[in-house]
Computed example of a mutant assay.
Amino acid sequence: MIKVAMTGVYVDDVAAAHAFYTDVLGFETRLHMDLGDDTLLVTVGAPGGAQPELQLVLEPGRGPIAQSYRGALYDAGIPCIVFSVDDLRAEYHRLRGLGVRFTHPPQRQGPVLAAVFDDTCGNLVQLIQSEG
C-alpha cells in the first residue's frame, strides 16, 4: 500500500511560514535544520502525535517555476493545499481572532463545509469539515 509521507507548499519565507504554521495554525515542528546560506529545511505536522507519518515541507518558493506555479494558483483563487478540521466554524472564528484573512467564509461545497484563507506566505489554504 502506498501512503503519503510528505507533501510540500512553496512559501515566500520559510522562517515566517514556520512561525505561521506553528504559532497560528497549531502544527508542531517535526524537523528544523539549518542547511547554511540562509536555507532551512522545515517540516511540520499535526500536533499531539496525530498522523505521525505525515509531514508538510515548507519549501522555499523563490525559483521561477515555483513563483509561476504559486502565482497562477493564487490569482485563480485555487488553494495550494487542503486541511481538515473537526469544527470549521470554531476554527474560522479562532483564526480570524488571530488576524488571519479569509478569502471566503465557511460555506457548503457538496459534502463538505469549506473556507479559504491567505497563509501570509504566498498561498491560499482551504479548510474543510466533512458533513457526513
Rank of each mutant, 00 (worst) to 15 (best):
V100Y: 00
L40E: 12
L41G: 07
R70M: 01
L35M: 10
G77L: 12
Q51F: 13
V100W: 07
S84I: 03
S68N: 14
P60C: 14
D75R: 14
E91H: 11
A46Y: 11
D87G: 08
G61A: 10
A90E: 12
I78G: 01
P52N: 02
A50Q: 13
P106K: 03
V44T: 05
G45W: 04
Y74D: 07
D87V: 08
V24K: 03
V100H: 09
E91S: 11
L40M: 13
V82D: 05
A66P: 01
L58E: 06
I81L: 15
M33H: 05
S68F: 12
V42E: 04
P64Y: 06
H93S: 13
V42C: 01
R94A: 12
R89G: 02
L41I: 08
L58A: 04
I65W: 12
H104V: 03
L95A: 13
E28K: 02
R96I: 10
A90D: 09
A90W: 01
Y74A: 07
F83P: 04
T22Q: 07
L40W: 10
I78L: 05
T29D: 03
G71V: 05
I65N: 09
P64I: 09
D75I: 08
V100L: 04
G71R: 02
R96E: 14
L40P: 04
R30Y: 12
A50Y: 13
P47F: 11
F27K: 08
I81V: 14
E91Q: 14
V24Q: 02
Q67F: 00
G97S: 10
Y92N: 07
E28Y: 05
P60Q: 14
G45S: 05
Q107I: 02
R30S: 08
E28S: 01
C80G: 13
H32Y: 09
R62A: 06
A46R: 01
A66I: 02
R101V: 06
R101E: 11
R70V: 05
D87C: 11
I65A: 08
E59G: 10
L31G: 05
Q67D: 09
P105Y: 10
G63Q: 13
C80W: 10
L54Q: 12
G48R: 11
A46L: 12
Y21S: 09
P60M: 11
T39V: 12
Q51D: 09
I81N: 13
A90H: 05
